[in-house]
């Protein structure tokens, strides 16, 4: 296995009773790229994400991250290696403030926080870094808002700031643009681009113009299998891809 690929899977398969959600997927994500995973609804993209981050255990196959077999690790263990995911439904801590949301991620730097006898004031050292991350995603004026009060696009931005707080080597973004308006899409696109300068990003995304604009490489999934792989030009010209997308009403 080459060092150029930060994340690889071999024969990754997930079977549910009588249904194969992901079937023999061999995925190779090159270090420092933005890699998109696309496909019609029910193609197994989110299941793939759940397998890669060990929120589900694969029925078969191996996952290798930075040359290390992470297949047996628990989800928190995967996150600790710097492979951090976001979620399809906006994953913020709704009743914490924006600042607290980001700070709880920064708090991971302390290792485990089982010190229940200490005041949370020890966490104030993270405030400055948290505010910087919040500024990066354009949320400075919302820092003391409760996350639940934020409009949808801002929640996604907060989620990205929280993910970045872990300083992950690789980000898995599950539909980062879902439900966003135009301005939000432009801002988050720019953000993902700047983030990817130093990291690897694997994302599931439905918005094909975002995919075309951002990603270096695209893998198309249908019915749990890899249908095509390549850059946007190659993939969009692929007859089977056109059929799969036109078949479910996308153009």
């Amino acid at each position: 296995m080459s060092d150029d690929f930060i994340l690889q899977t071999e024969d990754l398969t997930k079977e549910f009773a009588g249904f194969v959600a992901v079937s023999g997927v061999n995925l190779r994500v090159a270090r420092g790229t933005i890699h998109a995973l696309i496909g019609p609804n029910g193609a197994g993209k989110t299941t793939c994400f759940n397998l890669l981050t060990k929120f589900m255990s694969p029925s078969r196959g191996r996952i290798v991250y930075k040359g290390r077999d992470i297949t047996p690790l628990p989800p928190a263990g995967v996150a600790r290696l710097g492979l951090v995911r976001s979620f399809q439904i906006s994953a913020v801590f709704p009743h914490l403030t924006v600042l607290e949301n980001v700070r709880v991620a920064l708090q991971r730097q302390r290792g485990s926080s089982f010190d229940f006898w200490r005041s949370k004031r020890v966490l104030d050292v993270f405030n400055e870094r948290a505010m910087a991350l919040i500024a990066d995603v354009g949320l400075s004026s919302f820092a003391h808002w409760t996350a639940v009060e934020l409009p949808y696009g801002r929640k996604r931005a907060l989620e990205i700031a929280t993910t970045l707080a872990l300083d992950p080597e690789m980000l898995l973004l599950d539909e980062p643009m879902a439900g966003m308006g135009h301005e939000d899409i432009d801002r988050i696109s720019a953000l993902i681009k700047s983030v990817a300068a130093e990291r690897t990003v694997l994302m599931v995304e439905h918005n094909l113009s975002v995919v075309a604009n951002l990603s270096h490489r695209i893998t198309v999934l249908t019915r749990g299998r890899v249908l095509a792989e390549g850059d946007y030009k190659t993939v969009s010209a692929h007859p089977l891809v056109r059929e799969a997308y036109l078949g479910v009403g996308h153009a």
């Binding site: 989800p75 928190a76 951090v84 976001s86 979620f87 913020v92 709880v104």
Partner: peptide, 9 residues
Amino acid sequence: PRAISLGYK
């Protein structure tokens, strides 16, 4: 799930 994805057991 989000707390787990941040690496908290």
